[in-house]
Design a protein around this nucleic acid. Structure first.
Lengths: 196, 196
DNA sequence: AAGATTCTTGACTGCCTCGTCCAGAACATA
DNA sequence: TATGTTCTGGACGAGGCAGTCAAGAATCTT
């Protein structure tokens, strides 16, 4: 043991995440990250490695956070599953609609920019989408068991469709569509879900 | 009149588009564009302006092309509207599934990277999405008139939902989801469309 | 208190990148 | 063919970038 770190690692990662988030990976400068976090570049490199490793760390944390948030929103007993699903879909639309600076989602932005070239990013994105699909499909299945969604359709198929709608809402929000149209999409997706 | 251009402008724009498409705006280098097109940088700057103007030109052309392609796929008499819509949704899923290099869609990539910072890109993206929404909603309305989709739901709402699903399929494709899951999303979206 | 170890700062290096510029080439016109 | 205009190619400059490094500061252990 010797001199301990003098900065709050979580805070540094949060600030770094925001820079990557709004600028993108390529356009974000390490000097800006150093300035925004208040760290010297030596500390940054010592603690997190180079720019790519730093991004990966931030991206990993972000993906884990998204997955956890969705899990908290959807997990629970069969009884309230449909209501949780409904609330989540509407909440995503509402959050996207409220994002007037068009910041969007770092998962979407990172994937769009890097998944073609960067296997680590691609793998993390794939795993996150798999997890989300799983969570949503499980919630659909729960709602079917509770009798709130028609059991005729495969829950995995309905879950996959809902995931696509959610990612679509995010993409359209980034594209500047109006809050009302985003809300309408969420409502319509819920309206066409087959009820028993 | 004096010396005419010695290059094919469309070909240069096509090559340039491919570079921006796979690298992204920030990571694409003007020197690479010059090398790939075979032009000197002087010619490039003389003909198209700086990097930003060049990207905007490519992005504009791409958006116009997408809109035109969708128009050709969906326009027509009420009689075959549902079938055209169905074929289009399945074709988008199929095309996304076939894109094994994860190149995705330049509209999505450009919007994700730049719409927050670049008003010109944001405006072009918004207009393109508006146009696509219009085209799809019109086709839904036509299918409703032909009696192939239930007239109960507002065609604009169903059209907006379908656009979200299509953009979602594109986002999920970029995220590396399996071809089968993409096809399943398209099929399920069509299956839940209310029939009369 | 002394020594060992780790952290911090920011100047520095070397390469990269955009955009300019100019000398010469190619072409239309007359 | 002569002339004027535009295009071409590539060298160049200025600034930007990621990553390194060394000297000093802060802390833990003994």
């Amino acid at each position: 043991m010797a001199r301990p770190r003098s900065f709050d690692q979580d805070e540094v990662l949060r600030v770094t995440r925001d820079l990557f988030w709004s600028a993108g990976y390529a356009a974000a400068r390490v000097d800006d990250i150093a300035a925004a976090t208040g760290l010297g570049k030596g500390s940054l490199y010592g603690a997190f490695g180079d720019k790519h490793q730093l991004f990966l760390r931030v991206f990993d944390d972000y993906c884990a956070g998204v997955t956890e948030a969705v899990r908290r929103a959807l997990d629970g007993p069969d009884a309230g599953a449909y209501e949780r699903l409904r609330a989540h879909v509407l909440a995503v639309a509402e959050a996207t609609a409220a994002d007037d600076r068009l910041r969007g989602c770092l998962l979407a932005k990172g994937t769009a920019e890097l998944s073609e070239q960067d296997p680590a990013v691609a793998a993390r994105a794939r795993k996150t989408l798999d997890d989300l699909d799983q969570l949503i499909s499980s919630c659909v299945a729960a709602a079917q068991r509770a009798g709130d969604i028609s059991p005729e359709q495969d829950p995995a198929r309905l879950g996959g469709l809902l995931l696509a709608v959610l990612r679509g809402i995010e993409a359209l929000g980034k594209g500047g569509r109006s809050p009302d149209s985003l809300r309408a999409i969420a409502e319509t997706a819920l309206a066409v879900l087959p009820r028993p």
